[in-house]
Design a protein around this nucleic acid. Sequence first.
DNA 1: TAAAGTTATTGCAAATTGCAATAACTATTT
DNA 2: AAATAGTTATTGCAATTTGCAATAACTTTA
Lengths: 139, 139
Amino acid sequence: MKTINSRSDCPIGYTLDIFGDRWTMLIIRDLLLYGKDSFSEFLCSDEKIATNILTDRLNMLLRDGFVTKHTAPTNKSRFLYRPTEKAIELIPVLMEITLWAEKYNPAGAPADIVEPLKKNRTKALRDLKKKVEERLKAE
Amino acid sequence: MKTINSRSDCPIGYTLDIFGDRWTMLIIRDLLLYGKDSFSEFLCSDEKIATNILTDRLNMLLRDGFVTKHTAPTNKSRFLYRPTEKAIELIPVLMEITLWAEKYNPAGAPADIVEPLKKNRTKALRDLKKKVEERLKAE
DNA sequence: TAAAGTTATTGCAAATTGCAATAACTATTT
DNA sequence: AAATAGTTATTGCAATTTGCAATAACTTTA
């Protein structure tokens, strides 16, 4: 599994030790913004992550407390991954990335996320967080 | 040089195509937060980037419009790298990462950056941006 | 002119990624 | 009950990237 060797005390360095690869943050995105919660859902994202990388990164996220793992009530061979508080608190990071990217790659910004953010950042962040938490409670 | 194959239209995916590695964002950090602007300064950061990787990433950042490159007025064999607007606008992303990391890795958060941010986010961001722009004007 | 400083390149071993095949397991269908 | 389909995880291997050391090309300093 991808291991973390802390390279420095810097908060940016710390975060890059975890998310400094092409895949890990995409799983967090899928968990928080697209409501995905299973292996097969992560697998079919546009970026086409390979199964071995997905397995590796899910284990890493589990080990480091970003997700918890549960068997689905409907199907024992299906696992559900749920974001922890540690992951949910990455929403503001994801949103600032989205706002930045919207300026330099306007093609891909989803308006339903960007517009509320531009209008009232605090409210948009609060609403997004609430939405994720409601989804978690519903299970 | 590290090339970018766009994997999706998603803003998070777009940003990861650029910054989804262990080094690129550290150079942006050094440029914006620590006022570094030369090869040798980037080289001596805590994370100890290798010269070949540094060369590669500086060329990538140059090609993609995150930095401009100038010969130093005092020394023709020394090059100075200056952040463009595209890079400067990453300050909010860096700051949200810093705030998140401060919660889960409190050891390394530099108080002189975190405290103003917590107190008044908008002002702290404005001040940081102004500081970078003043530094650029001074040359 | 020699020494030191700055940026960049090269070579190579080690690690990681990308891709395909397939295994282990459960659920569904016949 | 047997076959089929669905879900998650593992393995093998080629290709790519990284980490590290040596060194080259150049400019400035002594």
